[in-house]
């Protein structure tokens, strides 16, 4: 399952990030680390980017990037 499969308010656990090393590094330090819980908060009015709650913060990332993050439902 990938991050973009989450419905509004649903939470999941981060499993794997299949992005460039730099972006992976960046996302981990923003909170998308292995085992952390992510909640899908909302999408921007035009459907992209997507807002998530992770490690105590709201982080927005683009749909294309979110679809490269593997998660598991809690």
């Amino acid at each position: 399952m990938i991050l973009t499969d989450l419905k509004l308010g649903q939470s999941a656990i981060v499993k794997k990030i299949n992005l460039s090393e730099d972006l992976t590094h960046e996302l981990i330090s923003l909170g998308f680390s292995y085992g952390n819980t992510v909640i899908y908060e909302r999408s921007a009015p035009l459907g992209d980017p997507l807002q998530y709650y992770v490690a105590g913060n709201y982080i927005a990332i683009r749909k294309a990037d979110a679809s490269k993050i593997e998660v598991e439902l809690v």
């Binding site: 730099d22 980017p49 807002q51 913060n57 990332i61």
Partner: peptide, 10 residues
Amino acid sequence: EDENFTIELP
């Protein structure tokens, strides 16, 4: 640089 958009909504 590769372009991405990650932003914190504080």
